Lab assay of single mutants.
Amino acid sequence: TTVKLGDIKVTFDNPEKAKKYAQKLAKIYQLTVHVHGDTIHVK
């Protein structure tokens, strides 16, 4: 599962960890989390 934020891409083996990371980023940057299959976009 890949978390994308602009040019930053972080890949996790564990989808749950990816989701938590995405939510953490979203909170920090006051953005929202969008899940598209294996990719989680923070924008």
Rank of each mutant, 00 (worst) to 15 (best):
V33E: 01
K17P: 03
V10F: 13
V42P: 01
T11G: 04
H41Y: 14
Y21W: 12
G6I: 07
K17L: 12
G6N: 06
H36E: 14
V3C: 13
V3H: 03
I40D: 01
A18R: 01
L31V: 05
I8K: 09
I40T: 02
P15N: 06
L5K: 03
T11Y: 14
A26C: 15
A22Q: 01
G6D: 04
I28R: 13
K9P: 02
N14A: 05
Y21H: 02
A26S: 05
T1E: 03
Y29V: 02
K43M: 14
I28N: 04
K4P: 03
F12R: 01
D38M: 10
I28M: 13
E16P: 01
D7C: 15
D7H: 15
V35I: 13
V42C: 09
A22F: 04
G6A: 05
H34C: 15
A22T: 01
L5Y: 12
V42N: 02
N14Q: 05
K17Q: 12
K43H: 12
K19V: 10
T2P: 03
V33P: 01
Y29K: 03
A26L: 05
H41D: 07
K17H: 11
G6K: 06
T32W: 07
K24T: 09
K24Q: 09
D13M: 12
L31Q: 01
K17C: 15
I8T: 07
A22Y: 04
V42R: 01
N14G: 04
K20G: 05
A26I: 04
T11M: 12
K20I: 10
T11E: 07
K27Q: 10
D38Y: 07
K43T: 14
V35Y: 12
G37K: 05
L25Q: 01
A22S: 02
F12S: 00
I8W: 15
H36A: 12
T2M: 08
I40Q: 02
T2S: 06
L25T: 01
T2R: 04
I28P: 00
L31A: 07
T39L: 09
Y29I: 03
T2E: 04
A18P: 00
A22D: 00
K17Y: 09
T1Q: 04
D13F: 10
V42T: 02
H34V: 14
L5W: 15
H41P: 01
K9L: 13
I40C: 03
K43R: 13
A18N: 00
K27W: 11
V35S: 05
T2N: 05
I8C: 15
K43E: 10
V3Q: 02
K43W: 14
V42K: 01
V33M: 09
K4S: 08
D38A: 10
H34E: 14
D13H: 09
V10K: 08
F12W: 03
D38L: 09
D13W: 11
G37Q: 06
H34S: 11
D7K: 15
Y21L: 05
I28A: 08
A18F: 03
D38F: 08
T2W: 07
T32G: 06
Q23E: 12
Q30L: 07
I40Y: 08
K24V: 10
H36V: 14
K9W: 14
A18V: 02
N14F: 05
K17T: 12
Q23Y: 13
T39W: 07
T2V: 12
Y21F: 13
L5F: 14
P15E: 08
L25M: 07
G37P: 03
H41T: 12
E16S: 08
T39M: 10
D13P: 07
H34P: 00
D7N: 15
A22M: 04
H36I: 15
K24I: 13
T32Y: 08
V10H: 04
A22R: 02
I28K: 14
V3G: 03
Y21N: 00
H36Q: 13
V35K: 05
P15H: 11
A26V: 03
K27V: 08
L31P: 00
I8H: 14
L5Q: 02
V10Q: 04
Q23I: 11
K9N: 08
L31R: 02
V3L: 04
K17W: 10
Q23C: 15
G37H: 04
I8L: 12
Y29T: 03
V10A: 04
G6V: 05
A26F: 05
G37A: 06
K17F: 09
N14C: 11
Y21P: 00
L31D: 00
F12P: 00
G6P: 02
Y21E: 00
K27C: 15
K9G: 05
L31G: 08
I40G: 02
Q30S: 11
N14V: 05
G37V: 04
H36Y: 12
K19N: 08
A22C: 10
P15D: 05
I40K: 02
A26T: 03
T2D: 04
G6W: 12
L31H: 03
T11R: 13
H34A: 10
K9H: 11
V35Q: 09
T11Q: 09
V33A: 04
D7R: 15
V10N: 02
D38C: 12
K27N: 08
L5E: 01
K43P: 03
K43I: 14
K27T: 08
Q30N: 14
L5N: 03
T1P: 04
N14D: 13
K19E: 07
V3I: 06
V35W: 10
Y29E: 00
E16C: 14
T2L: 07
L25C: 12
K4W: 15
H41I: 14
A22I: 07
V42G: 01
V33R: 00
T32K: 08
T1R: 06
V3S: 03
K4M: 14
Q30H: 13
K9S: 14
H41G: 02
A22V: 06
F12Q: 01
Y21S: 00
V33I: 13
V10E: 01
D7F: 15
I40H: 02
N14S: 12
E16T: 09
D7Y: 15
K24D: 06
I28H: 08
P15Q: 08
T1C: 15
Y21V: 04
Y29M: 06
A18M: 03
K9Y: 13
N14E: 06
P15S: 07
T32F: 09
K9R: 13
H36D: 14
